[in-house]
Design a protein around this nucleic acid. Structure first.
Ligand SMILES: [Zn+2]
Ligand SMILES: [Zn+2]
Ligand SMILES: [Zn+2]
Ligand SMILES: [Zn+2]
Lengths: 166, 166
DNA sequence: ATTGAGATGTTATATTGTAACGAATATCAC
DNA sequence: GTGATATTCGTTACAATATAACATCTCAAT
C-alpha cells in the first residue's frame, strides 16, 4: 500500500503508523504510564501523514471519535505524548509531528518542506557534535534543542524538474 | 555605565543599543527604506536588554510614546525589522530579540537561558557547515534556519555556584 | 467500601497573530 | 508646486493558539 502524493518519498506508510503505535504502546507499558484511547487516537492522527499537524486540526479530526473533545483534551494528550518522547513540537509552525526514533533519546533536527509540508527528522551526529562544541565554548549548559530548517525537500525538488503530465 | 544584573555578562549595554540603532538607520538609508518613528522605537524597546520580548509587551511599552498603538502597529514594525534583518524571531518563545550582527547575512543560532532569560546569538561556522552537509545528504534545499538551544548560560552557571550574600 | 492518583469533562479566559479597509504621509515625475 | 503613486499608519474586527481552574470520573490498592 504505497502512498505517493504527499510523502517524503514513496513508502509504505502503514508501516510508519504501525511501528509508531506499537512501540508507543510497548514503551507505555514498560514505563507504567497509560496510553489511553484519547492519547492513542491523537498519536494515530498525528501519524496520518508526515506533515506537522496543528492542535486545532487534531481537535476537529478527533471529534468523530471523542465527541466531548475540547482544546484541553488535545493539549493534554499532546503534553503526554511529548513527555514520553512520542512526538515533537515544531516550534516554528506551532504544530506537532511524530518522532521517528522512539528507541533513542535525541534532540530534534527537522527538515520542513515549504511545498509538500512534510517534516523529515534527521539525527546528525556531526551537527550535534559541532553544536556541543559551541555550547562548551560559550559556557552554556544545554537542556533542550530545536533545530528547524525550512526549505524544499528532495522529492519536491525532483518533481519540480519533471514536466507535468496534466 | 555597566549594567550587571541581567546581562549576558557585565558590559556596556548603551553601546549595544547605540550600535544597533545607528547601523539600522544607516542600512535603511542605503536600502531606501524608512526607519519611521514607530519602527525605531520598537527596535529600541527590543534592545532594552538581551531578553526575548513578546509582541504584546512591546505594545504596552510603546503606548506611552504611541498612544494609538494597536497589535497591528507592533506586528507591522516587527515584520519590517525582520525583513531588514534587524531582529530575529525566537520561534520557541514567540518572542523577538535584536540581531547582533547586522553587517552579515546569517542564520540564527540562539542560546536561550532559562534562568536569566537572556538570548545570546552565535555564529558558528562549524555548526552551519555540518548542517549544510546534512541537507545536501538529504537532497534538501534550505531557505531559512532556526537553531534554538535552551539551557543555562555561563553567567548564571557561575553565579549559581557562588553563595548568595543575602 | 474507602481512598487516592490519574485522567477527563467543562467553562472560561489568556495569549498570539491577521484581515480588511480607509486615512494619512512620503515620494517622484512632470 | 501639482497630481499620481506607493508606503505607512489608524482602526475595527476577528482568527488561531494555548492555559487556568475546578468538577467529575475511573480504577486500582488498601
Ligand atoms: Zn525524534
Ligand atoms: Zn517537499
Ligand atoms: Zn543575527
Ligand atoms: Zn542566564
Amino acid at each position: 500500500m504505497t502512498d505517493s502524493a504527499e510523502l517524503p518519498a514513496p513508502h509504505n506508510h502503514s508501516l510508519c503508523i504501525n511501528t509508531a503505535l506499537t512501540l508507543a504502546a510497548q514503551l507505555c507499558t514498560e514505563r507504567g504510564v497509560q496510553l489511553t484511547a484519547i492519547r492513542q487516537q491523537v498519536l494515530e492522527l498525528i501519524w496520518a501523514n508526515h506533515h506537522a499537524v496543528k492542535a486545532y486540526d487534531l481537535l476537529e479530526r478527533i471529534k468523530p471519535l471523542q465527541s466531548a473533545a475540547k482544546p484541553a483534551t488535545i493539549y493534554r494528550a499532546l503534553d503526554f505524548l511529548r513527555e514520553q518522547g512520542f512526538i515533537h513540537r515544531v516550534e516554528s509552525l506551532n504544530a506537532f509531528v511524530g518522532c521517528n526514533d522512539l528507541k533513542s533519546a535525541h534532540e530534534q533536527l527537522l527538515l520542513i518542506c515549504k511545498q509538500c509540508e512534510n517534516v523529515e527528522e534527521r539525527h546528525a551526529d556531526s551537527v550535534m557534535q559541532a553544536l556541543t562544541q559551541e555550547f562548551v565554548l560559550a559556557g552554556f549548559t544545554a537542556h533542550h534543542q530545536a533545530i528547524e530548517i525550512h526549505g524544499i525537500c528532495a522529492t519536491c525538488t525532483q518533481s519540480n524538474h519533471i514536466p507535468q503530465l496534466v
